[in-house]
């Protein structure tokens, strides 16, 4: 098992390098002078020259990449042009909001998506199943930001149940009731992703339901409940877990939109603000972190397969 983990970790290295090359190349895809573009038309030539110097833009590309990658390995993602602060600090400042939001949504996604998908599959073809299918199709077709705006109009403005926007830090104030600021955003973010998990869980269950070993289980005299839980669901978990890993990407993208709608001080909104400010070092840093996170989560998903399926464990 340990050998397997080590092998997988080593296998990730080329992917990480490739991802870093792609992220690094963003700045160099900017037409014209990146320094000029980042500082805007109002900047003096001296300022532009200074930035070019500090970012090493006057050196050969491969030297720039080597220097940048060397920094990344040491945890130095460069400096934000807007904040005049290391990018890693800027990201950490905003991480709290995004992490709380992500955790709350993923909890909702799991708590809603899996049980509903399972029930829908067990009651396959019933009226309930059809309603669930229709609802999950509907929620997968709604733009996240529009759903968020509607929730805001209804639950914050009209009913006054939740605050409309912002998020005062929980960690700094120690006030956990601040999490109420994140309820609507989390529900908004969870809705389309739950719909996806419902669909994939249901499909996974139905795939397994026709397996020969499920018939064997019934022939043994096991009750429907035992068959569905111990045999059908247990075997469809692999599909469900890989779907959850997949949701990560959708969740990150959804965070960008949701944080903007609800004006939350998170990393997602930082992305949009930095793009509008042309603060590319910050963008590079965030995207690199997201890509690495994705690969790491994928690794965890793969490793969990080994736990879920003895055929993988023993090969």
């Amino acid at each position: 098992m340990i050998a397997y983990v080590v092998r997988r970790l080593l296998g990730m290295v080329p992917s990480l390098l490739l991802a870093s090359v792609i992220v690094f190349s963003f700045i160099h895809m900017i037409p014209g002078d990146p320094a000029q573009m980042m500082l805007g038309d109002l900047a003096t030539p001296e300022q532009v020259a200074a930035l070019r110097e500090s970012m090493g833009l006057d050196r050969p590309v491969y030297v720039q990449y080597a220097l940048w990658l060397g920094g990344v390995v040491r945890g130095d993602l460069g400096n934000s042009i807007f904040f005049h602060q290391p990018v890693s600090e800027v990201i950490l400042d905003r991480a709290e909001t995004s992490l709380f939001l992500a955790v709350m949504s993923i909890v909702l996604v799991i708590a809603i998506g899996i049980p509903v998908g399972v029930i829908s599959a067990v009651r396959h073809n019933s009226g309930l199943d059809q309603c669930v299918s229709a609802a999950s199709m509907f929620f997968a077709s709604i733009p996240t930001f529009w759903l968020g705006l509607n929730f805001m109009a209804l639950f914050s403005v009209a009913l006054g149940w939740f605050p409309t926007s912002g998020f005062p830090s929980v960690l700094k104030s120690g006030d956990w009731s601040n999490l109420r600021y994140l309820v609507l955003p989390a529900v908004t973010l969870a809705a389309p992703n739950s719909a996806l998990i419902v669909r994939l869980t249901r499909a996974g269950m139905l795939d397994i339901a026709n397996a020969d070993y499920v018939r064997t289980a019934r022939a043994k005299g096991l009750s429907d409940f035992t068959v569905n839980v111990r045999h059908v669901f247990r075997n469809s978990l692999i599909a469900v877990v890989s779907a959850l890993g997949f949701t990560f990407v959708a969740l990150v993208a959804g965070t960008v939109v949701t944080e903007t709608v609800f004006s939350l001080p998170g990393v997602g909104r930082l992305v949009v603000e930095s793009l509008l400010r042309r603060d590319y070092p910050t963008i590079q840093g965030i995207i690199l972190v997201v890509a690495f996170l994705y690969m790491f989560i994928n690794l965890l998903v793969d490793l969990s397969f080994a736990l879920l399926d003895p055929r993988i464990r023993y090969s």
């Binding site: 397996a211 020969d212 070993y213 018939r215 064997t216 289980a217 022939a219 045999h231 247990r234 075997n235 879920l308 399926d309 003895p310 055929r311």
Partner: peptide
Amino acid sequence: ISMIFQDPMTSLNPV
């Protein structure tokens, strides 16, 4: 009443 099936490869739960 018990039953055995055609394909022993798929009739046992792999997990």
